[in-house]
């Protein structure tokens, strides 16, 4: 069952009088629980697709469906709610809130909308995530007291805290050394398996491509390869 679906999606940016065709009619779908990778050179349209799937941008043409909801025509409020309830984000440069500590950064998305969990359950869930990302000893640390790898671990826990259907990760290992990148990938794969959360990456990292269930290769705003790999082939 597709959790994300793009149908003949086009995106044109206007730069003065010039029109830049970032996407030229892209169609694909991603199944629930997939560990999917969007790959391609710079300017191929990876980030544009992530933005459309993340409901922070709208297509010029075509239909984007997230968890059965067509994003076109939704108000800013409804899109914000959809992001909060369905999506989690991991950014290349972590984007932690500097004034909050590890626990508070992870808790933050839960405080932005309805939270069906009770106080105790919420606390246990956050502590479970912190333990899962291996930061139990750093719960009270602020982001400037953490290494790059540790910050990205916090970002992963933060992306998962609302139990989203989909986590969108924009080059999550790009700012990390290879060893740390590897451990972050292992962590995401583990969370993907444990929570059945769909992970969608934009990446240049071949390690991700190797372990992905679903690889979509882009070039000049078009799909040039759309491959689903077997679960065995996608294992680490």
């Amino acid at each position: 069952m597709a959790i994300v679906q793009l149908e003949d999606v086009k995106k044109i940016y206007k730069l003065g009088k010039t029109e830049v065709h970032a996407l030229r009619g892209v169609t694909f779908s991603i199944a629930k629980g997939d560990f999917a990778a969007l790959i391609g050179p710079s300017g191929s349209g990876k980030s544009t697709i992530l933005n459309l799937m993340g409901c922070i941008d709208q297509p010029t043409e075509g239909v984007v469906t997230i968890d059965g909801k067509v994003t076109h025509g939704l108000s800013d409020k409804a899109l914000t709610r959809l992001r909060h309830e369905t999506l989690g984000f991991i950014f290349q440069s972590f984007n932690l809130i500097p004034v909050l500590n590890v626990y508070e950064n992870i808790e933050f998305p839960l405080l932005l909308g309805k939270n069906s969990m009770g106080k105790q359950e919420t606390r246990e869930w956050i502590e479970y995530l912190i333990e899962a990302v291996g930061l139990s000893d750093h719960m009270q640390h602020k982001s400037n007291e953490l290494s790059g790898g540790q910050r990205q671990r916090v970002a992963i826990a933060r992306a998962l805290v609302t139990k989203p259907q989909i986590v969108l990760a924009d080059e999550p290992t790009a700012n990390l050394d290879s060893k740390t990148g590897q451990s972050i990938l292992e962590l995401m794969r583990k969370m993907n398996a444990e929570l059945n959360t769909t992970f969608i990456f934009s990446t240049h990292d071949h390690t991700i491509i190797d372990i992905a269930d679903h690889v979509i290769r882009l070039l000049d705003g078009q799909i040039v390869e759309n491959t689903r790999q077997s679960a065995e082939a996608g294992g680490l």
């Binding site: 922070i56 914000t80 992001r83 984000f89 984007n95 809130i97 933050f108 932005l112």
Partner: peptide, 16 residues
């Protein structure tokens, strides 16, 4: 600005 974007991405409404 980037921090505002992050908060908005995670579901913070304009009013917040």
């Amino acid at each position: 600005t980037r921090e505002i974007g992050t908060m908005r991405a995670f579901g913070m409404q304009k009013g917040q």
